[in-house]
Amino acid sequence: MKTLIAAALATTSTLAVTAATAQEDPVRIAVLMYGNKAEFVQLMERYASEHPAVESGDVILTMYDGRYDASVQNDQGQMAINTMQDAIIINPMDFEANIDVVTMANDAGIPVIVTNARLNTTDMTSEVVSDDVQGGYLEAKDVLEKLGCEGNVVIIEGPKGGSGEIQRGQGNEQAIAECPEGAVTVLERKTANWSRAEALDLMQNWLSKHPGEIDGVIGQNDEMALGAIEAIKAAGLDVNDFAIAGIDGVTDALRAVKAGEMTSILQDARGQMQGSIDVALRAVKGDAYEPQSAIWEQYADDLSWDDGQNPRYDIPWTIVTTDNVDELLKDRK
C-alpha cells in the first residue's frame, strides 16, 4: 500500500513539474456566488467559464453556491482561503454581513474582488459592479418618457432594505423628480421580493383597486415587470396601453422587449464577471498582465482599464429596446 501511494505521489509530482515547465501554474480563483437559483447567476457562471484565460486553462475557477445565506458565504470564503486559492471573487448576499470575506482575504493577503452587488466597505481590492442608482434612473426615465412625464405609475420594489431596492429606488425617485412637480403620481409602491409570481398577484390587486388608472409600471427587476405584464394580460387589458420597464436583461424580458411589451435595462453579467476575472488576474500576476476579455474593447468609451488598479469599475448599463434586442437575444440559448 505504501509503495502504491509513493508511486502515485511520484507520478503526480512529475506531472506537476512537466506542467510547470510547459506553462506557469494556473491561477486558482474562488468565485463565491450568493446563490444559484436566479438566471442572472447562471449567466454570470457561464460567462466566467467563457473568459479567455479560463478557456485556455490559465485560470482554474472554483464556484461556490452561497445558498442565499450570508453566513454560508462567509464560511465558503474561509474555505477558499484554507484551500490556498490565489484570489476571491464574491457576489455578496448581504451588504454588511459579508464584509467578513473581505477582512479574511485581506488578513490572508489574497486579492478580493466584489462583483454585481455591493459591500459596505472600501477595503476590497476592487469592485466590478453596475451602479444601481443609475439603473433605477434609466428604467424610470424610460417609463416617464413614454408617458410624456404625465400620469400614474406604480413601483414594484425589491426586498425591503436590500441594497438593490434602496439604490434602484433612489434612481426611480431621481427620474420622477425631473418631471414637473405633481405631474406624475406614484399610486402604489410595494415589494414583490424580486419574484414574478408575487408581482403577478400584487399587480392584479392594484389593477382591481385602480381600474383604468395605472399608466406605467416601474419594476425594480425584470422578473417583477414580467409578473405585471402577466397580471395585465390576465385582467384582459392591453399591455400596449402601459409603459413598463424592468432591470437586468433576463432572457424572458428580452423576449418581451422584442414583443414590444416592455423596456429592459440590461445589467451586463458578462462585463461584471469577466471584468472581475481580469482585475483578479492583474492583482495576482502583477503589472505585466494585460486584460483578455473583450468587454474592455466593447466599453472602450465608458470604461477604462487603468492598469486594473481602480478601486471601482462601473460596468455600463444597456437600454434594451426593439432596436438592439435581436443582437442580445442571439447570445442567449
Partner: peptide, 12 residues
C-alpha cells in the same frame, strides 16, 4: 403556477 407566470423557475 407555471402556466400562470409563463415560466418554470427554480425558486418557484
Amino acid at each position: 403556477l407555471t402556466a400562470k407566470t409563463g415560466s418554470a423557475q427554480t425558486a418557484a
